[in-house]
């Protein structure tokens, strides 16, 4: 059973290898003439002012948190979806309860304005 995953491992190694090989080729074949202007961060012709790791909107953080909750829910739904015709009404009820609680939370954040971007 585990052996059937060996090709995947080989594929991942090969894909990483390709991702490493191409930039390495670029480093070898390309010229290398650094100067201060070229290496400064791009800023539409200005000298870069203030730190570029600036404060950012808290909503990006909020979206990330919400994503974790929902993605976890999807991970729970996967096995349930496959055996739905076997677990029957009881399984459906259990999942409906679970998703229902999550939907209450979803509606709450919706009403609270967590999904508003302007």
């Amino acid at each position: 059973m585990v052996e059937s995953y060996l090709p995947i491992l080989v594929f991942i190694v090969l894909a990483v290898g390709l991702g490493v090989l191409l930039p390495v080729l670029g480093f070898i074949l390309g010229p290398r003439r650094p100067d201060d202007e070229k290496l400064s961060p791009y800023e539409c012709g200005f000298e870069a002012f203030e730190d570029s790791r600036m404060k950012f909107d808290v909503r990006y953080y909020l979206v990330a948190i919400l994503f974790i909750i929902f993605d976890l829910e999807i991970a729970f739904l996967f096995p349930w979806a496959i055996v739905l015709d076997k677990v029957g009404l009881f399984g459906f009820g259990a999942m409906a309860l679970f998703v229902g609680i999550l939907l209450v939370g979803f509606l709450y954040e919706w009403k609270k304005g967590a999904l508003e971007w302007e």
Binding site: P23, G26, F27, L29, G30, P31, P34, D36, L39
Partner: peptide, 9 residues
């Protein structure tokens, strides 16, 4: 492939 890869400071 023949272009420089710039590594910003």
């Amino acid at each position: 492939m023949l272009k420089e890869i710039v590594l910003p400071l």
